[in-house]
Structures are given as C-alpha cells and as structure tokens.
Write a protein that binds this DNA or RNA. Structure first.
Lengths: 202, 202
DNA sequence: AGCAAATGTAAACACCGTTCACATGCAATC
DNA sequence: GATTGCATGTGAACGGTGTTTACATTTGCT
C-alpha cells in the first residue's frame, strides 16, 4: 500500500480523475475544471483521460452522477434520522438538499447542467431517480401503476420548492450576504411554509 | 437606413454583440457562445469586443441582465392581464416565469450563473430586483421598512417554487419527454398546489 | 516466454480568450 | 476646410484548451 511513485500504469485513473474534478471544483469552481489540470493533478498526461472517458463531457457526467449520489446519501441519512425521531421527513430531506447546495455549491452546479453533461447517461439518470425517490416518500401515491419517473403535482411542488431555494442560494441574488447559519434558518422558515400545501401523512 | 456594407466603425457594436450572443445561444446553447464567434457573426474582429466589454464575462453579464429584463417584461404583461381579468396575479406571473424558461432555455441558464457572470454588476442586480418585485406583489408586507432586497419566507417560497420548477424543466430530469403544452399544464397544476400555502389578497 | 490487449505518452491540430502596437474614422477646434 | 485628438476597429501574437494520432510501456493470458 506504499506509493510506488512513478508507475507507468496508474491503476485507478478513472476514479482518480473524478477526485481531481472534485478537488478543483471545490477549490476554484466548476468553470475552472480542465481536463489538462485534472491530468496534471493526477500526475498523468492529458491524453490518458481519453482511455477512460470519451469526452470532457463524459467525465463531467460521471462527476455529476457521483455528486447526486452524495446528495442522495445525505438525504437518506436525514430521512432515517427524522423517522427515528418522529420528525417531519419531507422537511428533513429538503433541508439536507439545501444544506448540500450551500456547502458544496460547485457540486450542486455540476449536477444540473444539461449543456455540460450527457443528461441521458444511465448512471446519471439512476442517481437522479434515487434522489427523487427520497423526496417522493411521505406522499400518498395516487396511482401506483404510474411511471415511477413521473411526479404528481404535489411531489413536483415539493421538489421544485426545495430545488429552487437551493438554486437561488447558489446562483441567485438571495441572501448573498448572509452566513451559512442564517441561510439555513431562512431555508427552514421557507420549507415550513410549505406545510399547508400538503395533506401528508405523519 | 440602407446598409453601408463595410464601414470601419460599426456604430452599435456593444448591442450587436448582445444580439449575437442571443442568436448563438438560441441556436446552439449558451456553452457554444464564443467571443470569436460573436465577433465573426457581427462581421468584426475578435479584439474589437474588448473596446466595449472588459471580458467575455462582462459580455455575458450584460446578456444575462438583458435576459432577466425580458423575463421581467413578460411577467409584467402577465400581471397586468391578470389584474384586468381579476385572475390570480401570483399564478399568472409564475406561469410567465416558467413559460419563459421552457421557451428560452439557453437564456434562462445564462441568467443564473454566478461563475460565468459578474453577479455584483449593478445592471444585473437591478434587473434581478425588478423581477423579484413582480413575485412579491400580492403579498402583504409585514415590514415595510425592511430591506427591499430581503424576502419574507412566503415570498421566498413563491420564488423558490417557481424558479425550481423552471430550473427542473430546463436542467433537470423532469418531464423530459413531454412537449411544451404538457409541460405548461403540469406547471399549472403544480403552481395551483401552492395556493393553500398562502393567505394572500385577491 | 511470447503475444495481445489495456493503458499511458508526446506531438500536433484547431480553437479559445486576451493583449498590444497600429490603422482608421469621427468630431471638435482653429 | 484643415488639423488634431479620441474613440473605435484590426492583425498578429501569446498561452491555454479539448481532442486525435501514432507510438511506448505494462499487464495478463496461453
């Protein structure tokens, strides 16, 4: 497990490149993510990336899928904790969503960028569907036979509210000068307002 | 008003470049917008753009501000019509918002891109504030002395819902295969759900 | 051991944003 | 009307970008 510094074959290049995207996006933002910079950071030639990804776009797609799964993980944790404590599951999941966006804005931007990723990618779609699942929980399914990718107006309102709030924090002129805690308090207040719109189970 | 084909001085380069961004973004998406391509389309050398904009980013900022104002125009029209007809103003304004996003996705993307524009630009901020104003209308202001850029939880919920719905249509995996009319019907149903969350004036 | 497939490389390509010294046209002054 | 100064557009150059290609190295299989 030591570091054989200069192996010709890297071994885990595909994943390491994703880590490089992660690091650069975290530090300098998604716009600063460059194939060449990722390669350099991993200690590998620029061309080698193409052995693992068709495109820069394919790399960003994989990164987006990974980011969505990270967000979904956070939502899953929030749901489980809320269930144990008997709290409002939808609220908890929504707060996890907004919190992630506030803490990892570059990741949040990378996730939803049709022009920069291959939005039809199966892994990406699967991750998005998993994420949507946590938001749908707690709603009474009016039609169980329905396409699982479809949303009832209520479900879509829930996702829209949470997503819009996150997006406005990250890329909009909302609460720009407030710190993290203030944003979270504001998010909490906003999501509370959502309550009356739903007749949902405890 | 004829066309003096080859004047050395263009005359309205700054605005023409915005038109070029408009055209290219409409046809090929915002990611395809290139300073050189804009210049070529206007029939001018690439360097000339820098006499009018500090940056590519400054050009995109101006375009974003223009796009926001276009959206705000649409919202203003919707509001006025709804008022005349005695309809739900907030709903009408929200539908204008979502409709714009569906019809001009590249514009909608360009508007909210902190990493690609100068989000502190006064013109941009003014446009955003104007837009927010139309969404705030119809709410009872609890604190009139408050910072006009601040939002009550209700107001922010309204913006978030509408913005999130638009964003999910444009850059999310929602209603991807549906046509325009179907999306608009779905948007209508979603925004209807919002009603119970507000105790707002007629 | 030997060979094929997988993986990494170096060099080249066209395109990108940006800068700088220079060319051109416009408008105000004499 | 000529001169002069300023705003505006140009051409060539720079380093950086994604991507391709022909080639090098390593791994894994027989």
């Amino acid at each position: 497990m030591e570091k054989p510094r200069h192996r010709y074959h890297h071994g885990h290049l595909a994943e390491s490149l994703l880590d490089a995207v992660d690091a650069i996006a975290t530090q300098f933002g998604i716009e600063a993510v460059t194939l060449r910079a990722c390669a350099k950071r991993v200690g590998v030639s620029p061309a080698s990336a193409f052995r693992h990804y068709d495109d820069k776009r394919a790399l960003l797609t994989a990164f987006a899928a990974r980011a969505i799964n990270q967000l979904a993980d956070a939502m899953e944790t929030a749901r489980t904790q809320a269930q144990e404590r008997g709290g409002d599951t939808l609220h908890a999941v929504g707060m996890a969503y907004v919190t992630f966006a506030i803490d990892k804005p570059a990741f949040f931007r990378a996730m939803w960028r049709e022009e920069t990723i291959y939005a039809g990618d199966p892994d990406y779609l699967a991750a998005a569907e998993r994420l949507a699942g946590y938001l749908k929980e707690g709603f009474v399914n009016t039609l169980d036979d329905e396409d699982p990718r479809a949303f009832s107006p209520q479900e879509l309102l829930a996702w829209s509210s949470v997503h819009g709030l996150a997006a406005l924090f990250v890329d909009g002129p909302v609460a720009k000068e407030r710190d993290r805690a203030q944003k979270l308090r504001l998010a909490d207040a906003v999501l509370m307002q959502l309550g009356p719109a739903f007749s949902r189970r405890a």
